[in-house]
């Protein structure tokens, strides 16, 4: 049902659209940062960094809109959830943009020819990209079930990260020459895993937005690497 005050509706629609636009840009940037892993040209890395600046700008715009609506409209119930969620999602997306930059920069430090594990890292990255696409779709549609599915999918990413960790340790033990490159690969994998966590957080917010109930409980954590090494 529309609001009696039409301009309020327009503002909420604009806010939603800003978040969705920001989400699309962040997904694109993350995907391009993964491309850098296999082809880290200066140009590609610079492209990722430029997109990050754009994401920050959009985040700023979302925050301004949030403050505007909070101050002038005093939103309630689902409107309030929409506004507060917008701010949280924007913050999560901004973080993801930061990880994209870090990933692209680290890509330049990878050895050539690449370690076999790079393939697993890229695969993990693509999985996280899918999570991002799904969770932003869920945001657009206020789809609690789809948000929940993303939330659950994070477990696979955490597991992939753990197995990758064991794999690279093996390479490092085989030949100390690999240590530098393996470390960079692990930094990259960690960044990807963190992006997955942020996608999961967005999933939680979408769930709250759609249902009014917090997703509750601790997130399913499949990451067992912490016990064996750095987290």
């Amino acid at each position: 049902m529309p609001h009696i005050v039409k301009s309020f509706d327009d503002e909420l629609t604009r806010l939603r659209e800003s978040v969705i636009a920001m989400g699309q840009m962040t997904t694109a940037q993350f995907s391009r940062s993964l491309d850098c892993l296999t082809d880290p040209t200066d140009e590609a890395v610079a492209g990722v960094i430029a997109l990050d600046a754009e994401i920050d700008r959009l985040s700023q715009a979302v925050n301004e809109q949030v403050f505007h609506v909070l101050a002038l409209r005093s939103p309630m119930a689902d409107d309030l959830r929409l506004v507060v969620t917008a701010m949280h999602v924007a913050t999560a997306l901004e973080r993801i943009g930061g990880y994209g930059v870090s990933l692209a920069r680290n890509a330049k430090a990878l050895s050539y020819p690449p370690l076999p594990s790079l393939r697993s890292v890229v695969r993990m990255g693509r999985e996280v990209t899918t999570m991002l696409v799904d969770v932003l779709g869920a945001y657009g549609e206020r789809d609690a079930a789809r948000a929940l599915a993303v939330w659950k999918a994070d477990r696979q990413v955490d597991e992939a990260y753990s197995s990758l960790f064991r794999e690279t340790i093996t390479y490092m033990m085989e030949d100390p020459q690999n240590i530098r490159s393996c470390s960079h690969l692990m930094f990259i994998a960690k960044d990807i895993e963190r992006v997955g966590d942020h996608a999961t957080n967005i999933g939680e917010m979408v769930y709250f937005l759609a249902t009014g109930r917090p997703l509750g409980e601790v997130r399913p954590k499949g990451d067992t690497s912490t016990a064996a090494g750095p987290s």
């Binding site: 049902m1 529309p2 609001h3 009696i4 939103p75 309630m76 119930a77 689902d78 309030l80 009014g212």
Partner: peptide, 19 residues
């Protein structure tokens, strides 16, 4: 009531959507 009302009428009223 103000974050997650159960009834659509409540929701409509407190969010200013009564048509």
């Amino acid at each position: 009531i103000f974050t997650n009302p159960e009834n659509p009428l409540t929701q409509g009223y407190i969010t200013g959507r009564f048509g």
